[in-house]
């Protein structure tokens, strides 16, 4: 997908704004240690997303979950 430079810029600005907002957001019920880390969920999502894709590709190709379409025929 080719996104124009403008769109990319806007996207990153929004991301930055959210991070800043999160830094200032009051924490409701901080229970776990990471609840208070600013932008923790951003990092979590980024890493988690890559992790999920990695695992599913591993499942699909290495564990042979993905088969040809006529597998059952």
């Amino acid at each position: 997908m080719k996104l124009s430079r403008k769109v990319k810029t806007i996207f990153f600005i929004i991301l930055g704004l959210i991070v800043i907002a999160d830094y200032f957001a009051p924490r409701g019920y901080p229970i776990f240690p990471w609840d208070t880390i600013p932008a923790f969920w951003g990092a979590f999502a980024f890493v988690g997303c890559l992790l999920l894709i990695g695992i599913s590709k591993f499942l699909g190709y290495k564990l042979k979950v993905m088969k040809k379409e006529d597998f059952y025929d």
């Binding site: 929004i14 991301l15 959210i18 991070v19 907002a21 999160d22 957001a25 009051p26 924490r27 409701g28 932008a39 923790f40 969920w41 951003g42 990092a43 979590f44 999502a45 980024f46 997303c49």
Partner: peptide, 14 residues
């Protein structure tokens, strides 16, 4: 606010 920002962070970074 923290919940909204956390959600947006997750969505954005995803």
């Amino acid at each position: 606010m923290d919940h909204v920002t956390a959600s947006l962070l997750m969505l954005g970074f995803t």
